[in-house]
Design a protein around this nucleic acid. Sequence first.
DNA 1: CCTCATCCTGTGAACGCTCACACGACCGTC
DNA 2: GACGGTCGTGTGAGCGTTCACAGGATGAGG
Lengths: 361, 361
Amino acid sequence: MTQVTTHGPHERATAPVMADVARLAGVSHQTVSRVLNLHPNVAPQTRERVEIAIAQLGYRRNTAARALATRSTCTLGVISVETSQYGPSSTLFAIEGAARAGGYFINLVSLRQVDRRHMREAVDHLMGAGVEGLVAISPLRSAVEALRGLSIDVPLVEVEATDLAAETGVVVDQHAGARAATRHLLALGHQTVVHVAGPDGWLEAQARMRGWQSALLDAGREVRDVLAGDWTARSGYAAGRELAGPVARGEVSAIFVANDQMALGLLRALAEAGLGAPDDVSVVGFDDIPEAAFYPPPLTTLRQDFGEVGRRCIELLMARIEGRPAVARPAIRPQLLVRASTGPPAGAPRPGGASGATPGP
Amino acid sequence: MTQVTTHGPHERATAPVMADVARLAGVSHQTVSRVLNLHPNVAPQTRERVEIAIAQLGYRRNTAARALATRSTCTLGVISVETSQYGPSSTLFAIEGAARAGGYFINLVSLRQVDRRHMREAVDHLMGAGVEGLVAISPLRSAVEALRGLSIDVPLVEVEATDLAAETGVVVDQHAGARAATRHLLALGHQTVVHVAGPDGWLEAQARMRGWQSALLDAGREVRDVLAGDWTARSGYAAGRELAGPVARGEVSAIFVANDQMALGLLRALAEAGLGAPDDVSVVGFDDIPEAAFYPPPLTTLRQDFGEVGRRCIELLMARIEGRPAVARPAIRPQLLVRASTGPPAGAPRPGGASGATPGP
DNA sequence: CCTCATCCTGTGAACGCTCACACGACCGTC
DNA sequence: GACGGTCGTGTGAGCGTTCACAGGATGAGG
């Protein structure tokens, strides 16, 4: 069936193509293309005629044809772990915004399980879509390793892969953040700091633990065993139950918890044991999730600038795609926010006025 | 420059195309296409030869060319509000998973601000990408309205647009959830229930408020003014401060808060005033975020099945794209989870041995 | 042995765009 | 007036796939 090619606004079965615009404007398809691509050598008058024709027909350039001809899809793939964790999802949105601002489309894959097979599938899916670059939000060691095994023939930027990808990714200096948290607690007068860590496979968890360790060692303080959690409030609660005894006996006066959710659970368990922060124990979290300021008590924590993470990510990826040299940037440092959950140890003189109300019985 | 066309695994400048596979397998490009598209009429032996050639060359079908020829991009657009709220981000991941399982790619746009201009841009961006269908995670009235104004020539499914899109979207019965929450509190013996609502523009907030209202009216109870929040723990905290007085004076004994984060802030404010749940007041939240079980005290709340929301979304969208009649499904009902934050009013006989209450019969 | 249907395969033309190139008009310069 | 350069425009050939159609085998039935 041949195409209907009437002028004027007309309901048509098929979407208008460049040739239709050209015919309506009385120019060649190439001139239309030039207008669309902002080529300088088009007479203003011609340009206007074409633009009117485009508007009149509601013409929209066919991306597939364009991609086929130019061999570029203007699409980036993002692989994210499927978690409603505050960090990854904030990062995802920041990445999307930055990519769109840079004229790229975002093709998303989320991974419920992070193993080699699922990672392979995800990468295949995205390569199949013809992405020109890949962002992996891969805070898990397993994700990084799964990625290592794969032969990926487009630029790849890893987010939060810490030291494993200092060269190829965007990192937040978790180590420095953890040091800051620990030093804050020591500066308040605590003898040492206990750590409730994130799950084993998470690189951030590891970096935070190391930072805590190094700060203690630098200060010549005792490094006790860590309690392992899994980011959930539930695991923080379990840790809190374990620590309630030592806290009550005065053996533990300061706790650095690897994220805010676990800190919530921990505070809950301590409260059930009749222990409150900062009177009986000081607690520092990590992330500054929006609720952290409303914990019982408001939580001292470390804020990460996820927006900046996303922007750097895309900047780096675009540079690599276009073959530009990537500007090396210092790692992003988390910022310590001191709230009500930390204070001097019980024996020390206290400034006073802290609310620290322990809810419940 | 003409293409190098050696056989065997060879590093080549350009990715192999169908013709290369055909040549290596000694068949025509069309036969390769048939193998790829699982056409039945291919001799098993030929199929195998082609498959070996594909594997050997690492051939990958060019999506752009395929899209151009078939006029289908296998891509869905998702517009999401940019929020790290538990609900929307869980829904997003669920949608992605369901779409990928159905063989579709997901093109994501997130909206920092939801107004007509940004919505228009988002839709344009996605239409430009050639999406075949659109999912809008649009829990905001403004989003729904912005969408209404736009002429979108692909199927659209709205998530969480409640009554405004009962026909065209996937909805969770917020109204029923709110009624369940309210009835639960009344059943415990509370005279009436106060409501801390979500922000004005959010449809879920409105539906939850109406549900609360209708349950009270059905029971012939007093409907007081609502306190408006904005989903954040901060606003819940503010509401808590306002309610502390009435609670202390025994004027308020039960509060239904429109989401869990606000409930957290509210509990915090009450705790600061020396008031605890469930002894002094009962509190119900909404969403069942993972932390809700670890609130002080563990929160009675309503769980929404976001995974189901995502799956229905894609099911509906695919049906519409393929012109199949969509199966009408009843709205998804949230499930009441009774935890420790709710109990009988202070005056009533109490089952448990909580603080200084008169033991029940 | 011929016919017809069925299976398998190949040929050429779209699909809608961009790229490389060619061409005429116009300007200034010698 | 001839010449080279720039500007504006048009022509035709791809990009890599699928679709429509045309064949050449092969087997069953007359």
